[in-house]
Design a binder for these strands. Sequence first.
DNA 1: CATGAATGAGAGTTCATTCAT
DNA 2: CATGAATGAACTCTCATTCAT
Lengths: 195, 195, 195, 195
Amino acid sequence: MAKPNVVSKRELIQYAKECLVEKGLEQFTLRAVAETAGVTQGTIYYHFRTKEQLLLAIVRDICETSWQEIARPKEDAIAHALASARSRCSYDSFFHKLFLSLVASGFNNEEIRHKLGEIMAAENEALSRNLSGLWAASPIEGVSRDTWGILINAMVDGLALQAVLQKDFPVESIYREFEHFLKGLSALTDKEGKK
Amino acid sequence: MAKPNVVSKRELIQYAKECLVEKGLEQFTLRAVAETAGVTQGTIYYHFRTKEQLLLAIVRDICETSWQEIARPKEDAIAHALASARSRCSYDSFFHKLFLSLVASGFNNEEIRHKLGEIMAAENEALSRNLSGLWAASPIEGVSRDTWGILINAMVDGLALQAVLQKDFPVESIYREFEHFLKGLSALTDKEGKK
Amino acid sequence: MAKPNVVSKRELIQYAKECLVEKGLEQFTLRAVAETAGVTQGTIYYHFRTKEQLLLAIVRDICETSWQEIARPKEDAIAHALASARSRCSYDSFFHKLFLSLVASGFNNEEIRHKLGEIMAAENEALSRNLSGLWAASPIEGVSRDTWGILINAMVDGLALQAVLQKDFPVESIYREFEHFLKGLSALTDKEGKK
Amino acid sequence: MAKPNVVSKRELIQYAKECLVEKGLEQFTLRAVAETAGVTQGTIYYHFRTKEQLLLAIVRDICETSWQEIARPKEDAIAHALASARSRCSYDSFFHKLFLSLVASGFNNEEIRHKLGEIMAAENEALSRNLSGLWAASPIEGVSRDTWGILINAMVDGLALQAVLQKDFPVESIYREFEHFLKGLSALTDKEGKK
DNA sequence: CATGAATGAGAGTTCATTCAT
DNA sequence: CATGAATGAACTCTCATTCAT
């Protein structure tokens, strides 16, 4: 088996992520990645042919992580997703800084953009699926199940965006009310069902 | 050489915005701005002492536009806001490309980040205020009025993020259902009120 | 009479000197001069057609000051010169920082260099003249009166160079011994004279 | 492209010295150094991380050369030093143009200034030591041996400064009389000894 | 007289990238 | 496999200078 000598590709990607989050897109340089990883710039080029490829590798890595997370069947998937979303929702969120940096970078690179879109779509779908299991009917007439996934996923991302921009954003209390909101919707499905 | 009054600061900011959106954060160079504006790089530096200052000027400009938009009292403010949100929600949305690029840039610059956070906060507040006028009570128990503003604003931004990443995102239909969602919520306030 | 409105040429030269000393040759910019003087760059150009001309004006100013100092007849001229030299001999000597900066600048500009050379020559001459009045004969055979002026002037400048480079240079004690040195030489002229 | 080992650091320093002397401090640009050395600017930056570091490297190089020169024990060290001083004393003196440019540059950079001061101090000391070997006693009462080193070194530098500023400075004859001066001083030590 | 807006060349510096070793 | 030296283009930024007002 090919045993990488000093650093594995996977490790490099991790270091690159850190760099991207710490330095920001504008100062995300291959030299910085190399230094963080303790290798030379040449080494980066041995593993990734260009900077773009490295960025793409980061995106692919996020995709995979995301698929796995989504695919793993869980009891109470919605509650789980909500907990995970809340834990990532903060002013210093590694994940969202990374994601939003990649979004900005995606405006220059269709492939990155497209892949990030796929992640979103998959999340939407997973949410829709799980909500279907939970709700006998749509809580509100005129809103399809697929759309509920999209709307709620959008809410999660929108809240993350707010948190990442506002130091004093009250994540805890908002998420508590967010849960009430979801429970309230669920309750509606019962009432509707009874009718 | 040295013709006075070729461009105003305001015009430069407009050109800079265009550049930022068209070229993306990584390739947003002062040379590009200068070329777009038809002036020399020196002129940019005469008006904005650094690139960072130019970015800040863009953010400040967005802030002002945003305040004005929010401050102007309107009938049916919610409907208006929704229409405006929908019109800006697209794969090629100038506004959201600009905003998200600035968000990424804000990870390097607290002032930018803070100002963007202020915009969000102001939008939240405006939404809350308008919803208060519309809803006699909260549609769902346990969700305060302020939180409704935050949640719905998050939804709008989250949808924009989705649209900007997915070429085939069905903005029209989603927004139609989004309206149903809001109407559904409004309906709930009536029922609650009757109780 | 033409009454300069905001600043006189002379004042500008003073500000320019300050800038040159404070910022050093490499960062001696017309903008800095303008700011220091509280005028715009254009104003500098009204008074001096180029940066070179400004530097030359500084040199000319130093020349004039120097001539006047030298020309003024004094009793005990040597003692006076020595006292003045000592007072200018320090790590932060405005005069020598200025002079040496101009010397370096003179390597690019023959006119500056030449004028600085003239100052030196005049100082040499004045010293020689004064020594002649003091010494009946040369203290040491084979050293002409003109040369004594040159040697002692060189010593003064050399000491200043040392002082300007060494924070802990013991100016006081060195100058005390420098005086002994001169007195010793004077004593020699007496002995020689008696023979 | 990218041929390894085109220039050594040492060579670059030499080229940089040449540039500094030829172009003067104000026009001493890294581009010029690169062109002189036949490499690209990037190469300069690979070896010296900033322009300041390059200047410092030049100073350090001069220091080392200077130490070696001083440390090497010689017969008739004074005569040797004088000969070397005379050879470097001219209107176009590479060494003194370099040194004085660095002095001016040192006004912006304490490290450079300090190192240049160290060179002076070491020269002073070496001179004092050598004079001690030559003179049984101080030629003139009230002037210590250390001070003699300082005074004579100052003279050497002062003469160099004069020479560098005056095209027609009579280096030859002055140095001849300078030698008489030193011999005269030596003679005094004998007389003093006899007393 | 003096200014402020603009210029354009060039400064120092960084960066992705290459390639012999 | 990995490195270190080198590249060259591009970047941000500064500067002396110009000129209409």
